[in-house]
Each structure stands twice: as structure tokens, then as C-alpha cells.
Nucleic acid binder design. Structure first.
Lengths: 220, 220
DNA sequence: TTAAATTTTTAGATAAGTCTAAAAATTATT
DNA sequence: AATAATTTTTAGACTTATCTAAAAATTTAA
């Protein structure tokens, strides 16, 4: 049996390496989990003994196949629960993270398959992040950050690169939620901000921080 | 912050005393939690220090107002999640206990109020057990065990006094789920079994163990 | 290529929750 | 009322997960 804490370490390692197979350092993990490096060393030994990670002293850590499977399963659960909270319980996209963080640890394969069906097998969560299938495969989508578009081009918002409540609420206030259509009117070299037309109706100036953290599917 | 283990002890104490304010013994708790008496003594000290129970050495334990509030809140969560699993995810009544046992520990008042609304404010769970409201009040319902009915009387199944998978599946096979109508045709003094008519169609002989563990609302 | 800076690991403590075995207190029995 | 049986608590140990401080290994820089 794997503990919630162990699960959180596996998820952190996956988050740091993504789909690649790079090794992550002890310090990277400790920064991600907000814990001491000494605690990470301890946990790494335990996970290594269980065969969930491959690790060499001073060299770093990478997930084993088994560890990767658990990590993607956690992400799958987390994102499916987020869909549930938003679609069924009417939470907003900035309210769901902490609750999903708890729900992802509920142990029942059967439960998650039924939840998936109940939700209509969604492929993306309320933030536009892909929901891995049972085998851990993530849906691919052609996307770029809004900052990469040139004047005259447009795109549809499909995701965010930052999940803070503050950022998500700010996007709401700009009508820049998922599905919003954005056309680049003008870019300002000075601070890399850009003037855009949102949903063919409202002009808005966006800082580079915003445009870099917004993913769009380029159109036209 | 209260731990899951602490929550489980409070729930066990509540289960043992019910709505009364009797003291429960250390051994009773250890039997309920399936743990050693020594562990119970340790935990009792901790809960007492937190003001969640009132306890005197060798005299027994009872819940404080605060402890009772937490216990009923856990039961509320457990039963609401059971309704969700059965009504929305199409689980059967014998499959939901273990999953609800995990879900009841998810911490979010907001979540449970929204779940309650999503489910249409149910008053009873899939086993017929009452769901306490936010203030911890249980709905009252006039009910007796089937064994208490006399020949000629009838009732509608509204609850069970045993929640084992075996018992619930057995009831299913007899078409004796919640809502079933039962009329007593004959009782046998010898072993306290009774012959009944289920849903005005099928005759069945029920052992006293069954009739004692089935709650009905008497009709006629 | 040696010294300085950084990263990682070890050593030793602490807290929660569990256990067994033994001691203490209470209750039951003769 | 004294003894026996039962219940409860204490004592001491173990595991998981955490910490700080110090030691060891590695990397960077002069």
C-alpha cells in the first residue's frame, strides 16, 4: 500500500520532469513539496526500495514505469474531480484545486472509471489541462502561448500556464476564460505588452506576464 | 486541525452511544475500531486534551458538544457521498461503504453543501439511514423491525440494521430492497421465521435474523 | 588545481499512531 | 471481605514523516 505522502512525492517528480525522463535533483523536489532536503532524501530511499523511482546518490531521481503509472493516475483523478466540481457542483475554476488535491487520493479504480463515464469522458479539465486516459496517455493539442502570436493573428484560449487564484480571477474579469477568442491588434516592444480584441468586442491591453501564461489554439 | 484517525475515533464513540449521552468503555471502542485497548487509552487522552470528549480514568468516555458536532458531520458526509455513488455513479448499495469511508474525510464545508444541493437535499441514504442536516439533526421516521409485525399486517421496507455486503445482496435476491412491500402471511413459533408476501406477488419464508434486521414502515 | 560555494546525505530529535507485556484499578464471585 | 477475573492504564518499543545541524560529496570559480 502506498501512502498519500508517497503519492505526493511521485506527483511532484512527474510534475518536474513532465513527459521526459530527466533526473530531478533533491533540491528541486524539496522546493516543489515545500519540505527540507533531508526529508526528501529519506523519502527517496523509501520510494527507491519500493521500486517506484530510480535513484543514485548525488545524481538525481527519475520515475520507474510503475512510479510513472501511479503519478499519471493521480493526475487523471485530480483533473476528473476538477471537472466534476466545476461541471456538476458549480464551483469556479479558481476554487477547485485544494479540494481535488484531497480527492485525488481516494483509492478505487472502479470509482474513477465510473466518474469518468458520468462526466462524459472529458479530455481536458477546467483549466484546459489534458486528462490522461487509463493508460496514462495525454491528449495532444496544437497550442502556443498568446505571446507567440503576431499582429493580425488570432486564437482561442484553451489553457493557462499558471493556476493561481489571483491569475484565474483576473482572467475572468477580462472575459479571458477558456473559449475566449483573442485577436492581436498591436504589440509594444517596450514592455512586450500587447493590445488585443477579446471576443470581437472589447479591446484590452495585456502585460507580457499574462500573454505568456495564456495558451491559445491559433486560428486564421 | 483534526486528523483522520481522530475523526474515526469520534465516529466510533458516536456510533456506540447513538443519540444518548452514555459513557463508552475503552474496550468497546477498541472492539469497534479494531485496535488495542492501549492505543485507545492514548487516543482518548489526546481527544480529551483537545476538548472533543469528556473522560475519566476507568469511568469511560462521552463526546463533548464539539466532538458530537464533528461526529455527526462525518456521518452526514458519509451518507451524502453514498447517495452520490448510488444515484449518480450507479453503484449498488452493497458497494459504497468503503469508498464513502474515505470520502467522508475530505475537508470542505462548501463542498458538502454543494453536494447536498446537487443531490436534491436527500434525507436518507441508500440503506435508509437518515442524513443529519447541517446542525446535526436526524430526520425521524416511524419504523419497526419486520419481526415486530403480526400476521395480516404489512409494511414498506425503509432500512436495514445490518450493512454487510452479504446481507444486502441477499435482500436484493429476495427483491427486498428499499420500497418493497411486505405482508405477513404466517409466523412459525418454532424458529421465529415468517412467511411473507413480497410486492403482492411472491411468497417467501424469512428467518428471524432477516426479519430482525429489516426495518419497515407499518402500513394498514 | 586548489579553494569556495553549493548540494546532498547523515545523525539525531520529535510527533502521531500503533503494538505487546506488565502493572494498576475496578468489578464480580465465593 | 478476600480472592479471582476483568478492564484499563502505563511502560517501552516500532514506523512514518518530519525537522535542524553538521558532515560529506560534488560543482564552480579563481
Amino acid at each position: 500500500m502506498i501512502s498519500q505522502t508517497e503519492e505526493n512525492y511521485l506527483k511532484a517528480i512527474f510534475k518536474l520532469t513532465g513527459e521526459s525522463d530527466d533526473a530531478v535533483s533533491t533540491n528541486q523536489i524539496s522546493a516543489e513539496i515545500l519540505t527540507s532536503a533531508a526529508s526528501v532524501t529519506d523519502m527517496i530511499k523509501r520510494l527507491s526500495k519500493k521500486g517506484l523511482i530510480k535513484y543514485e546518490r548525488y545524481k538525481g531521481t527519475r520515475l520507474s514505469d510503475e512510479g510513472r503509472k501511479i503519478a499519471t493516475s493521480l493526475i487523471r483523478k485530480h483533473r476528473l474531480w476538477e471537472v466534476f466540481l466545476v461541471e456538476k457542483l458549480e464551483f469556479t475554476w479558481d476554487e477547485v484545486h485544494d479540494i481535488a488535491e484531497q480527492l485525488e487520493h481516494i483509492k478505487s479504480e472502479f470509482l474513477i472509471e465510473r466518474l469518468d463515464r458520468f462526466l462524459g469522458f472529458p479530455k481536458f479539465d477546467p483549466h484546459g489541462d489534458p486528462i490522461p486516459d487509463k493508460d496514462g496517455n495525454f491528449a495532444y493539442r496544437k497550442q502556443v502561448s498568446l505571446a507567440q502570436l503576431d499582429v493580425g493573428e488570432s486564437g482561442v484560449v484553451v489553457g493557462v500556464n499558471e493556476h493561481s487564484t489571483a491569475f484565474l480571477r483576473f482572467l475572468d474579469s477580462l472575459a479571458l476564460g477558456l473559449g475566449a477568442e483573442v485577436r492581436i491588434l498591436e504589440t509594444f516592444e517596450y514592455d512586450m505588452s500587447m493590445k488585443v480584441l477579446v471576443n470581437q468586442s472589447k479591446e484590452q491591453v495585456l502585460s507580457s506576464k499574462i500573454s505568456q501564461n495564456l495558451f491559445v489554439m491559433p486560428g486564421e
